[in-house]
């Protein structure tokens, strides 16, 4: 925008009073705040001895997991919508025809570069079958970059680890909408 753009509104600075010009109240104010905090209570959580209390594990955006369908197969249908939505371009999928007669397409390989991920949760939002979800595991670490690129097996194992503590979204939604209008029901339960 050019500085003489007509749409710019120039706002006048409020004039300084005598107190402001003497600078003393500002000096005092600054140092008071500082001193107050110097002695104040500390916020630091001493990880790893202490753990963060996660208020809403279902809403938390931590490590991903790939959910399984009723028969324990990967639920993902390899639609690439998560990869499309991902702003960090960290999801890599290779799709193929599924080996199962009742399903058409499935991810032959599915990897997420957890180092590149910004944990925005867009993939979870985008997934039409609730196959990808973010868990409340937040302290992932690894000794190499390769180790932090999670493949399908690893992502499924995260599901196995967390499925009891954090039930699948669609399962919760179904329970919630059983009595509500059918239109808002999640479509994910259908084997697509």
């Amino acid at each position: 925008m050019k500085s003489d753009d007509k749409s710019i509104k120039w706002v006048e600075e409020p004039p300084l009073g005598l107190a402001g010009r003497s600078y003393v109240p500002l000096l005092v104010g600054g140092i008071t705040t500082t001193l107050k905090h110097l002695a104040g209570p500390k916020m630091t959580v001493e990880s790893p001895e202490q753990r963060h209390a996660i208020v809403d594990p279902l809403g938390y955006r931590g490590v991903h997991r790939l959910n399984r369908d009723a028969q324990g197969r990967v639920k993902c249908v390899a639609c690439f919508l998560c990869a499309t939505a991902c702003p960090a371009h960290c999801i890599d999928i290779v799709a193929a025809e599924s080996p199962w007669p009742d399903r058409e397409k499935y991810p032959e390989s599915f990897t997420i570069d957890e180092l590149r991920c910004i944990f925005c949760g867009m993939c979870e939002e985008a997934c039409p079958v609730d196959a990808i979800e973010l868990t409340s595991l937040y302290d992932l670490s690894g000794k190499s970059r390769e180790e932090m690129i999670f493949d399908k097996a690893k992502l499924l194992s995260v599901y196995d680890q967390t499925k009891d503590a954090e039930p699948m979204r669609s399962a919760q939604a179904d329970r919630a909408t059983d009595s509500a209008c059918p239109d808002s029901g999640e479509r994910g339960e259908e084997p697509i």
Binding site: D102, R103, E104, P182, D183, R187, E190, I192
Partner: peptide, 8 residues
């Protein structure tokens, strides 16, 4: 509303 997606 009544019909859910199915596989072709």
């Amino acid at each position: 509303a009544d019909i859910r997606p199915f596989t072709s």
